[in-house]
């Protein structure tokens, strides 16, 4: 055990370097003031989950997704969701080739490492479930044939939480497929003034070269799996939090077992990003809101409550195991 531990402490910092490079470059040059969201996105990517960006239009949800896609040097597909979008528009379809006298499968935008599903709540439920099924299974079955999706695979979906007309809100069961939900928020004053001065940065984003290769990302993911240790104490802490949400008087449904797994996974990714070989309670605390807020259901009479606040107040009642 001791020997094993000793090896683990010899951190493979090479695996993290490119990841930090991506975060720093994006935060400093392209997406100023969005470092928190960028870090959350990277956490999602490393943990092998999907990201839902929830905010009003015009705060840079799509820009962030585009910037990530460009910087990561991964194949990128974009789906603009509308009410008439069909499942086949996402998965792809077979087209008859007259010359060869056969049907050829033309893969849809989902066959990319990074998929941006813009305004996901505008797609009708049938299409939504096709997408969400692909997200969960990481493979697509079209006309009886199953096609695996590439690795890494991450969906960045965006939605506008305020707009209600002509939308099909994602049901809780499907929201569960997203590892992290986060908002973007308005940039800080100085930053926003600078953005107003220079105009939209969409064009600049196209120039972002590939900062991270697919191989580097895979190495980092592997390092994360091997190196970051999840202590029993942290497992205990996560379990306590999950049980507390299930017994909370304001909540109808608490964090599911899948939610707890996701929290642990995300916490490990965060520890990896923080150059640690072990998860600390602060990782869990920090990620509880983004990972679990969309997984809990408040009682109807408390519908107006901010679920992140509910979780935050819950943290103040759960003691941290420190020894």
């Amino acid at each position: 055990m001791k020997l094993h531990c000793d090896n683990r402490t010899q951190m493979n910092s090479d695996a993290r370097k490119p990841i930090h490079h991506v975060i720093d470059t994006l935060a400093e040059h392209y997406l100023k003031g969005k470092v928190k969201t960028i870090k959350l996105a990277m956490t999602t990517l490393l943990a092998g989950g999907h990201l839902l960006l929830e905010d009003i239009p015009g705060l840079g949800k799509t820009t962030l997704a585009l910037a990530l896609a460009n910087a990561l040097g991964l194949s990128f597909g974009r789906i603009q969701c509308t009410s008439d979008l069909l499942p086949s528009d996402i998965t792809g379809l077979s087209i008859y080739d007259r010359n060869q006298n056969q049907f050829n499968f033309v893969p849809g935008p989902i066959f990319n490492n990074l998929v941006l599903a813009d305004e996901i709540n505008r797609a009708m439920p049938k299409t939504q479930s096709a997408l969400l099924e692909a997200m969960e299974e990481r493979r697509v079955t079209v006309e009886g044939k199953t096609y695996p999706l590439p690795d890494p695979f991450m969906v960045i979906a965006t939605q506008n939480p305020i707009e209600q007309v002509g939308t099909y809100p994602l049901p809780e069961s499907q929201l569960d497929r997203f590892l992290i939900t986060t908002g973007i928020g308005y940039p800080p004053e100085e930053m926003e003034k600078a953005i107003i001065m220079t105009g939209s940065i969409r064009d600049g984003i196209r120039d972002i070269g590939s900062l991270l290769s697919r191989d580097q990302l895979l190495i980092a993911k592997e390092a994360l799996q091997k190196e970051v240790y999840l202590s029993e104490k942290i497992v205990e802490y996560i379990y306590r939090i999950a049980t507390a949400t299930r017994n909370h008087k304001l909540l109808l449904a608490g964090v599911s077992t899948r939610g707890a797994i996701s929290l642990a996974e995300a916490a490990r990714a965060k520890a990896f990003l923080a150059n640690r070989d072990h998860v600390i309670p602060e990782d869990v605390k920090h990620l509880l809101g983004p990972v679990c807020a969309h997984r809990i259901i408040t009682k109807p009479e408390h519908d107006t409550l901010d679920r992140k606040e509910v979780l935050q107040s819950l943290l103040d009642t759960i003691p941290v195991t420190l020894a």
């Binding site: 202590s231 104490k233 420190l322």
Partner: peptide, 9 residues
């Protein structure tokens, strides 16, 4: 401290 405690050693 956390280095040791949260790697269970």
């Amino acid at each position: 401290y956390q280095q040791a405690v949260f790697t269970d050693r």
